[in-house]
């Protein structure tokens, strides 16, 4: 496979994952705004921070009004991570690597792009927000379904999956990092309704409320949330799960290509970090520091993959 193709697949799936993650962030923020259970503007501010686009946003707006934030995240061309920008990039990568994709995957991405061009052509109002978010989620699911259902399990698939999980690991770490302060044990807030909303919202931004309830009953505690989103290998957006998946795909590539690469060493190291570790220990060493390191590690791993497999020469 061409190095360029590997890179195209990797980024295509990073951007598709980003579309979905952004739509969830908007949904979680919207939920807070609807229920008016917290300070809405500061909630939207943290959504912008989580998306990692604060400087860009500040250039354009000096408030965090819902419609500004929503439109910036969903359709603003000045925001390279907006859903519309992301699907554009995902689709042009798909065009670039079209020969590596099954017809079904290509068509699913192309239809996704056509749909977004239509529904995001005009500013999104509160009234049509919900169906748009649902459509984003749906169209992403179709691409993923087609990937699972129609693609060979070979190197092509491995690069797609690594793109997905690199993006997801980054996203989960960011969500936790922006909110880490609400997870810290602090006598004054514990048990207050404010905390509960915030915690729930962390789960909501990764679509994990239901899963969490199954595992932990009704009781939401910061330690349980952190444990769930960092350490739980059953949870598809936990850091441990994402790193496992990246490592697994790198192992497939090793089997396929017969070469062990440096990215694999790093993936091994990152996965080992979670073995036999208690979430209490992470809190002790500093949650924020842990998450910051994790964001850096993910970026480092991505750049090693890029070099090892010659994405750019």
């Amino acid at each position: 496979m061409l190095g360029k193709t590997a890179g195209g697949l990797f980024w295509m799936f990073r951007y598709l994952e980003r579309c979905e993650n952004t739509s969830r962030l908007v949904e979680a923020g919207w939920r807070i705004a609807l229920t008016r259970t917290g300070d809405t503007e500061s909630e939207w501010e943290s959504v912008i921070n989580t998306a990692g686009i604060r400087p860009l946003y500040d250039e354009k707006y000096d408030d965090f009004e819902a419609s500004h934030v929503i439109n910036f995240l969903l359709r603003d061309a000045d925001n390279p991570s907006s859903v519309l920008s992301s699907i554009n990039v995902a689709r042009s990568n798909a065009r670039l690597v079209r020969t590596a994709l099954s017809a079904e995957v290509w068509e699913a991405v192309n239809e996704y792009w056509m749909a977004m061009k239509t529904v995001l052509a005009r500013p999104v109002s509160e009234r049509n927000l919900a169906p748009i978010l649902a459509e984003i989620r749906n169209k992403t699911a179709v691409v993923r379904g087609m990937l699972h259902g129609t693609m060979l399990r070979n190197d092509i698939y491995n690069f797609c999956r690594m793109g997905t999980f690199v993006e997801r690991a980054d996203n989960t770490a960011r969500i936790l990092d922006v909110k880490y302060y609400v997870l810290l044990p602090s006598a004054s807030f514990v048990g207050s309704s404010m905390d509960n909303t915030q915690w729930e919202n962390i789960l909501r931004s990764v679509s994990a409320q239901r899963a969490f309830s199954w595992l932990h009953g009704g009781e939401i505690t910061p330690a349980a949330i952190a444990d769930f989103l960092i350490m739980d290998r059953r949870m598809p957006c936990s850091l441990a799960f994402c790193y496992d998946k990246i490592r697994e795909n790198l192992y497939h590539l090793e089997g396929d290509y017969g070469i062990r690469q440096s990215s694999q060493d790093l993936a091994d190291t990152l996965c080992a970090k979670f073995n036999g570790r208690e979430v209490a220990a992470i809190f002790e060493d500093g949650l924020h520091e842990f998450l910051e390191t994790s964001i850096r590690d993910t970026a480092h791993l991505a750049s090693l993959i890029e070099q090892d497999f010659r994405f750019y020469g």
């Binding site: 061409l2 190095g3 360029k4 590997a6 079209r98 020969t99 190197d155 290509y257």
Partner: peptide, 24 residues
């Protein structure tokens, strides 16, 4: 079932036109 290449994927290596793959 052929590769789709652009000029920046290609280079002359050992007297052959070669494409940059994930394996070299």
């Amino acid at each position: 079932g052929a590769e789709l290449v652009e000029s920046h994927d290609l280079r002359i290596v050992d007297g052959r036109v070669a494409m940059r793959t994930t394996l070299g």
